[in-house]
Every structure is written in C-alpha cells, then in structure tokens.
Design a protein around this nucleic acid. Structure first.
Lengths: 252, 252
DNA sequence: AAGTGGTCTAGACCACTAC
DNA sequence: TAGTGGTCTAGACCACTTA
C-alpha cells in the first residue's frame, strides 16, 4: 500500500477523539435520537474523512460508555433507557438474598421550589433557581422500601407536569430522553446513614428518626452537565445497596 | 497486500479473546509479576502467532480492566496495587466536603477461626474452612472512622502472620500481590445500615448499637475467584461512601 | 539513535440480518 | 443477495523514553 500521510491532527488531540467529540455533539444536538439507528460505519467514515478503523475506534469508546449500541447485521443505535435493559445499572437496590426485581413506583407529591445553596452547588446552577421537586415511593415485593426525592431545574425540563410523570410508561430516564432529549449517561452517588423524616417513616413503615440508608445522587447528561439531583432513602432491614468495582463491561 | 487467510479461530471464540485468555493464564501463573514489564507487542504478536493489531486488541481489554498498564516509549507493565495509584478505586470513603485522604491503619487484632456458612457461601469454599481473621482501625484526619474486619482462607495465604501485616509498607492489596501472588482485580459490595458492636463503638467513638454504614465486600482475583471477605463499618457522621456509575475509564 | 507503544490506513474475509 | 458490523492483517508514521 502506498504511504499516505495522515490528515493533520488538530491541536485538541487525536483523530479518533475528534471524531468521538463530533459524534457526541451530533448526539447532543439530537441529530440522532434515542433508539434510532445512526449511519453506517462506511458513511460516517466518509463524513468525517477518516478510515473505517479510526471511525470504529471512536464508536468503540461510545459503546463502552453505553451511549451507542452495535448490532451486527443491523447497524449502530443510540442507546435508549429501557426498563428491560440496563435498568439495574442505575437502580442498585436488591433484597438481601440477592433477588432483584423492578420497583413499583407511586408518585407521592409534586411541587415547585427554589433551589437551596447545597443543591445549587451540586447541580452547578444559581442559588434560588426554580426547580421541579417530586417524591416517589418505590415498592419491592409489595412493600415500600425506597423513597426518592427528585429535583430538576425547570429550564432543562420545560413544560414538565405532574400528569406527565404519572402517565409515563417506562423508566424516568427513558422519559427524560424521549420527552426532553436529555440522555443520562452517568451518576455520582454518596452514601451515608440518615434518619427517617415523618413522610419517609410513614411510607417505609419505620419509626420517625429510624436510621435509613441515604443516597445522594447527581445524574449527568451526554455533555457531562448535571441534570438531576436526587435524594434516596432506603430501609435496609431486608434490602441493600449493591456496588461493585469489577468493570464488568464486556463479558461475552 | 495479498489475501492471507487468517489462522483458524478456535471453538472458544475469536483470536484476540484467545490471546487475552492466554495472557491472563500467564499472569495467573506469575510468568510476569506485579510491576514488571511484559514483552514488547512485537514479540508477543510473534509468540501468539497474530498480527500486532490483534495482539493490541487483547492488551486493550486488559488495560481497560486495570490489569496491565501501558507506557508509551517504555513498555507494558503488570499493574501493581500502590498507595499512590488507584488506591481510591477500592477505598471509597471521603469526608462530606469531598476531601479524600489516605487512612492511617492500625491492626487491632489477628486470629484464626473457622468459616461460618454465610462467609463460606461468599468465598465459595467449604463451611468450616480455616480462616485468618483480623481487624483494622482506619483513621482519617486523625480520627478512626472506619473499622475493617478481613477474612482470608488460610490455603490461599500460606504462612501469613500478624507481624507480616504489621510490617507491610504499602496497601493490603499490594501485600497480597507481592507476598502471595494474588492480584485483586475487582470487588462486589453490598451496603446497609448496621449497629455498632462493643469493639466498634470504642474504636469509632460512638454508642454501642449506634447506626453505622456496613459494607460487605468480596474481592476477586485475576481468575475471578473470590479471595477475600471483608466487613467494613463506617461512622458516616462526617464521612460518606462514594459510588458512581460513570465509567470514567479512559479519560485522557 | 534505537526501541517502545500510539495512531491511522486500506483492505480482506466472516457472521449476522433483512428482504 | 445486499448491507451491516466484527475480526484480522501488514504496514507506515508519530510520540515518547532511555541511553
């Protein structure tokens, strides 16, 4: 093969990283939406002016981050949050005997409020910014064991209403993706012991002030911007939170 | 270039997976030890009878799993557990303000015991198997906030003594690696609220029965076999456990 | 200067899916 | 059969490290 000098690489880094960033930009701009197929590798290679191998390396990384999904013979798709796939990547509560089931979610309340300084810092927005705030009770094996309080900046979820939340047919993150084009790709969580509030004690059927496991979550979207703040409280009498550092990414 | 029919691929799967398994076997057999450099890509490609590209794909995955580390211009090395690198991958406690520091470890006691059924199930060994059991108090910012109780099967750690644990100069997992050739590559953890025992209450300076965060960990070695059982109890008054699902694997 | 890994290419062939 | 992604190859050139 002849010696072809590669196209010059921009100052940012390497060709495939540039391609990856360009694809992330296209995804953020909703050029391709959740569940849709993206153009073939051949076409994308032409579009970005790189060889198939380089294009594939960019897609490799996006797949490793669960942003794209490849299907041999079918094409490459924008990953979609679904109840039946990757749900337990974000819902990490299981019964102590290991049994994992889908929670039955009940919306307990829905209101608007202004952002407190602590939450503002986590969401990287101004103190006092208007938020949607709602609480879900999650039942496992017919009993409520998790209470979620979710806070969303109004500007990122324009037009969100209580009835939209009640009538959604899939997961919350699927709803964010379909209705607002917000693709949650990762979360940071901090866990600690906390004490049940009056509302929580009723829902969880524990005494007021009983110790519960608190999970403070910030969810990030495609462009690494925080989009959701969530405070989860779990009755760990019969259930527990599962974490791992196993990098169980690509196991055939 | 001429059309070269690739070597037949074994029934197990693909060429690069075969190469990866062969390298894992070599690592498990301690052909290359922690911190050592492995042969160059060119030599390994010759040894396994594949092209550089295929060999690289195998190494790519081993690097993604933190088993190998590449250094451009230097070579590829067997990842070594070190206090100054990847330490916080396994030590996930930080102060509530986010400050992460290295714990000061004190060995509180060391004994031998027989395995209980619950631990036997986690470690996938027989009930009653002999174990080393020891407890560490971990201080952060000059105060004990974490108490670890570690259980190791005697057969996997032959000759382990209390003084070896006291005189180790690096992390526990570094010690496993150097002294016993056991390379911890991942952990499964389950978190729940528990209540301080007498010993824990003294060390953590809380009341007996005070709620603490319990982390039950099983650590796995290169060949995915469980090698360590650990019960961690944390006083989360000023500290917390950090988890994330961000897949922050390869960020330049 | 020599050796290492890092990137990129151009193309072949295979496996899977849909029509 | 056509089109997709999956694997593999053989090699060029670049960037980094050590001496």
């Amino acid at each position: 093969m002849s010696t072809v000098t590669a196209m010059p690489v921009g100052p940012g880094g390497t060709r495939y990283k540039e391609v990856k960033e360009a694809m992330l930009a296209a995804l953020t701009a909703q050029e391709w939406k959740g569940g849709e197929v993206i153009p073939s590798e051949k076409k994308l290679a032409e579009r970005f002016g790189v060889s198939i191998g380089t294009l594939r390396k960019a897609i490799d990384e996006l797949c490793a981050e669960n942003i794209l999904i490849r299907h041999q013979g079918l094409g490459t798709f924008v990953a979609q949050h679904r109840r039946d796939r990757h749900f337990f990547r974000f819902f990490r509560v299981a019964r102590r005997d290991g049994d994992q089931t889908y929670p039955v979610v009940t919306l307990v309340n829905f209101k608007r409020a202004k952002c407190t300084p602590a939450v503002a810092a986590r969401l990287n927005i101004d103190d006092g910014t208007r938020l949607f705030v709602f609480t879900n009770a999650l039942a496992l094996h017919e009993k409520v064991v998790v209470v979620d309080t979710v806070m969303l900046p109004e500007t990122k979820f324009p037009g969100l209403t209580e009835s939209m939340l009640r009538s959604r047919s899939n997961t919350l993150y699927n709803f964010y993706q379909d209705a607002f084009g917000i693709n949650v790709t990762g979360t940071d969580e901090r866990l600690r012991v906390a004490y049940a509030s009056e509302l929580e004690s009723k829902l969880l059927e524990v005494d007021v002030g009983a110790p519960v496991l608190e999970v403070e979550r910030v969810a990030y979207s495609l462009n690494q911007k925080p989009v959701e703040y969530r405070l989860t409280r779990i009755n760990t009498e019969h259930y527990e939170y599962i974490a791992n550092t196993t990098k169980a990414s690509e196991n055939a």
